[in-house]
């Protein structure tokens, strides 16, 4: 139920973000979602894509350093308090979130949260146990590209 996330190291200067995105677009790989964390000097681009293994190969061949990380996607109702409820569950279970990002779907009433946990397997157990919906790769593909 874990998702494969690609992360890339980028220098924080003009034009650096476009290059890797173009490289995978050229191969017809769709980006489901992304997040960017940056400092003054460099940034880390995190991507969830349809064909992660192919995308990784493409990016590595083009010279980027690419990491593969397992993340967990959870969908929550896209309404006030939706995120807070999910977070309360995680906090209550003492699960440590390394970082997270979120996006809402164009259609429907759901928002997707992407979590990076220290221990993703345990996190999935807890989430399921508490009745939250963990979204797996295929499901994410279908809801995003719909």
């Amino acid at each position: 139920m874990k998702l494969q996330q690609l992360s890339l190291f980028l220098e924080n200067r003009p034009g650096r973000l476009g290059a890797p995105l173009e490289a995978i677009a050229k191969e017809g790989i769709n980006i489901l979602t992304l997040s960017l964390a940056d400092t003054a000097q460099f940034g880390i681009l995190r991507l969830i894509v349809r064909e992660w293994d192919k995308a990784k190969q493409v990016l590595e061949d083009a010279g980027w350093v690419v990491n593969l990380t397992e993340v967990v996607a959870v969908d929550v109702l896209d309404r006030p308090g939706g995120l807070a409820e999910a977070l309360a569950v995680l906090e209550g279970a003492g699960l440590n979130i390394e970082y997270m990002y979120a996006f809402s779907l164009r259609r429907g009433d759901k928002a997707i949260l992407i979590f990076r946990f220290e221990d993703p397997d345990r996190a999935i157990d807890v989430l399921l146990e508490k009745g939250l919906h963990v979204v797996d790769g295929d499901e994410l593909l279908s809801v995003v590209s719909g």
């Binding site: 992360s7 964390a37 400092t39 880390i44 350093v65 690419v66 990491n67 970082y99 990076r116």
Partner: peptide, 11 residues
Amino acid sequence: EIRPEIFSDRM
């Protein structure tokens, strides 16, 4: 230069 062994997705 960044290399796989020193890169992390965590800031």
